[in-house]
Design a protein around this nucleic acid. Sequence first.
RNA 1: GGAGCCGUGGUGUAGUUGGUUAACACGUCGGCCUGUCACGCCGAAGAUCGCGAGUUCGAGUCUCGUCGGUUCCGCCA
Length: 589
Amino acid sequence: MTEWKRTHYCGDMGKTYVGQTVTLNGWVNRRRDLGQVIFVDLRDRSGIVQVVLDPEVLGPEQFALAERLRSEYVISVQGKVMDRPEGQVNVNMKTGEVELHVSKLVILSEAKTPPFHIHQADDVDESLRLKYRYLHLRSKELQDTIMLRHRTVAAVRSYLDGQGFLDIETPILIRSTPEGARDYIVPSRVHPGEFYALPQSPQLFKQLLMIGGFDRYYQIARCFRDEDLRAERQPEFTQIDVEMSFVDREDVMNIMEAMIVHVLAEVKGVKIDTPIPRLSYQEAMDRFGSDKPDTRFGMEIGDVTKHLTQSEFRVFADAVRAGHVIRGINVKGGATFTRRQIDQLSEQAVAMGAKGLMWFSLEENQVRSPIAKFLSDAEMQAIQAELDGDVGDLLLLVAGPWDLVSEVLGRLRLALGKELGLIDDDLYNLLWVVDWPLLVYDEEAGRYMAAHHPFTAPLDEDIDLLEQDPGKARAKAYDLVLNGVELGGGSIRITDRKLQERMFAALGFTMEEAHDQFGYFLEAFEYGAPPHGGIAFGLDRLVMLLAKRSSIRDVIAFPKTISASDLMIEAPSRVHQKQLDELKISLKD
RNA sequence: GGAGCCGUGGUGUAGUUGGUUAACACGUCGGCCUGUCACGCCGAAGAUCGCGAGUUCGAGUCUCGUCGGUUCCGCCA
């Protein structure tokens, strides 16, 4: 029964095996039937090798079997590895110097004609690929990314294990918390009318593990959020979740950047210089107009407000009077932009919330601009100097409140960077963003909301701002950014009961309300809580970047669509009335 | 919740100002073929143009709705 079993992988075949008898198992990738000889490209997860089916070697009966082979048949072939004949080497194949001369063929499984070509599946309609995900998974592209994901996880685990972190699982059926993202909820049969929630992250449990004395914890944890999706958001996704005790912010960042550096070296062979640069939130917004700046190209934001305080031009004068700012970017070489292109940029800026976009095209002997005539020579020169403008450049200015202006310019900068091909695809630019705002005012709710979560510690020097000026308080929080994508974020947690109460007060909670929601958690802090902090990384996003993909669907074996459906298993689905009855659930309509 | 793009044999695409036999490539099936590697040659089958209304003498094409996929904004402590 075992004579068909594999002795080697297809992709490993090469010169060193010549003369050996091997058995390979795999799928028929392609078949080339020349009549009295049939070539089959045999595929397994390691790669492809050419096998030769020759009636003189196989005998008539086995050759008749070979003639039945079709794409995606699963077969076992035994035979001798041979050098390819003179001039028949295929330089495009890793295994192209050799071929297997088959003496024994077994068809392990026949296959219907697949709904799309496995070897060029990436162009096929996404819904079809998702319905037949198991076929798409056979493609080289997905095999490579899923294996890359495995190596990434393996590198993470080996690093963290080496640093004394313990892999501990936390519950999937937990309690719903009203703050944050929408929960996926699961009805309880034993407690009719009550529901579990699926975790948005293991946040509270990992802190309880610290209080439980485990000191260093990690988990490759599945998280669930019932929010609208994007290319880089799935309803269930995976975090590398880490927490550690008796540490400050520096400790967490040092250990975690060493982990990412280790992963990049192991998986991509990329060497990263440490320490990884750190930018305050304020500086990131100021220079790049983003809390996750892509630093693979320049085009940094400049501020020209101070040169225009006396301006006669209405837009500038109004901005200065309102305490607003006038800021801009320099599109190097952008003087070649057509009016139409510039108008499109204006439309984008307005769509992002700007009042308008002012522009100056620096041409050989003149400045082309609809507003140049309103500015003095000195003002024009100061703007050029501030933004480092040379002949051939295009300067873009936006006036308004600092945060809005910065954000608009940040997004224009990113769009232009992509459009103009300024981004080097081979770079891995890592960056810590620190000193985040602790609280953000929510107009809708009419109160401050935790920017990160309510257990994030403020900077020591900002503690009194909790009462004096909550919006100014900064957090002991940190985000790691890779090529303009937020890879992960975390913080040092509040472990002082008094401070936690002040935090809740700043959020507009009474202690009663806080205890209602987080009572078990707050109680735990009364029994000896070590100082601790941690971080969580988006594994899917990390692998997506390493694989140079633009959607995390490509790095998840069985992803969902943008409407949170699984087209293969057809989930979600209706359930039988009997199940609903057991749960005491009735449906409206 | 909002905006954009896509949907035509199994797959990828073409299809002119609305005009009568919906084209091409790959794949599939049959035949031929002993060194191919995107094998080649000959032949064949295969489409209610996502679905439903409407406009029109006539709709793949125009309009509205709807379903699915996708991208972005809101949302994602």
